[in-house]
Design a binder for these strands. Structure first.
Lengths: 203, 203
DNA sequence: TCTATCATGTAACCAGTTACATGATTTT
DNA sequence: AAAATCATGTAACTGGTTACATGATAGA
């Protein structure tokens, strides 16, 4: 039972994580997140950065520490994690690790409706997907390998390894699926093609 | 490059799919979606139903056909798919089948931050996750089996089979991951435990 | 010095969810 | 006849994204 968090945006979790190491200004948070490659795992943009910092502050998880000034730039408010923020961070992360979430990936939706396409088109599209999946796999593989070559510990790459694992599972699934459609003996294509006989007219 | 759709909510895709078979009233759409089990693949609720129908109508993908009346109930506007809606439906579904989307599952976010937990706690939580994953697997397996027993064609269960495949991949991944942490020879636990020596103080 | 990019913030807009409201059937 | 639940819709709120705005530094 996913507890209702006062702040639900995962960007907040990443922020609390960084702030647990040292207080920071908003912009530094953004830069750190960007440079650290967290954007691959957590969606964020300039706008949400401000929004989420506001939410965290209102919830009492972070607090203004001081307002520094560097050069002639505008003031920069430094935020620090509060004790309550630290507790929330741990609890939330623990929940995310233990409890699988019911999510709604686009491909699941596509599969649930794929019968609406004629079987030969479905197969054609699925084969295209296989190409894309291979490309993506190569990309992630490369990203991991270059990071490892730069001595990034494997621990900091687990999320990418996980992506790879899921990607491989999806690839196998799609291959098997196209097989089940096209098998000359037991393939679904004929039956499938039937309820595409008379398409309903447009309006 | 995921084209920018005029209506982006996947609920709209499911609606167009049903409307491509026959015109319907909003409430029927909701009921059909519910009874058909689409809620497992596509998030929707009473409120979004109205919103999305409005969006589809404004975009010209569906149009009012007639307003019927049954018994003493309020009028019910019947919507039908337009030709432009039919085209959009096909194009969108094709895109979803061919193009893997970059998504942000919660577990990926959790993994990207898991180093913030002490290794032994991480392992404990991951093992709890394994239990949950097994439960979920059993549930989906059961759902598939009862459906098959009721002669639902396998084609209409592919999205659940896909879930199973992904679930299995995740299970293997988590098992391997815990192994890499706890291995008595080469495990990451010692090094990992080190940068948890002195936690920064709360504010 | 001009231009690009960095750094910083606000305002307006759109999507999505929740809560409210209400009459019509069906069940007890 | 009361209670439940079905059927239907609107309004208000919240979260998130996009667009606008602007001064500061760095590079050409």
């Amino acid at each position: 039972m996913a507890t209702k968090r006062k702040v639900g945006n995962l960007l907040a979790l990443a922020m609390m994580s960084y702030l647990s190491q040292q207080p920071m200004h908003r912009y530094d948070l953004g830069r750190t997140l960007r440079d650290h490659g967290d954007a691959r795992s957590i969606k964020f943009n300039h706008g949400s950065l401000y929004m989420v910092v506001g939410q965290l502050a209102r919830a009492g998880y972070i607090t203004e520490l001081e307002t520094g000034r560097a050069g002639q730039r505008p003031e920069r408010t430094i935020y620090g994690l509060t004790d309550s923020g630290r507790a929330e961070f741990r609890a939330w992360l623990a929940e995310l690790v233990t409890e699988p979430q019911h999510e709604y990936p686009h491909f699941v939706a596509a599969l649930s409706l794929i019968a609406a396409l004629p079987p030969d088109e479905a197969v054609r599209l699925l084969r295209q997907r296989l190409d894309r999946l291979r490309e993506e796999r190569a990309e992630i593989r490369g990203l991991i390998d270059t990071s490892l070559a730069q001595n990034v510990p494997e621990l900091f790459l687990v999320e990418e390894e996980y992506r790879l694992a899921v990607l491989d599972a999806e690839t196998s699934f799609v291959e098997e699926f196209t097989g089940k459609i096209t098998d000359p003996e037991t393939g679904w294509a004929p039956a499938w093609a039937q309820f595409h006989s008379q398409p309903a007219p447009g309006v």
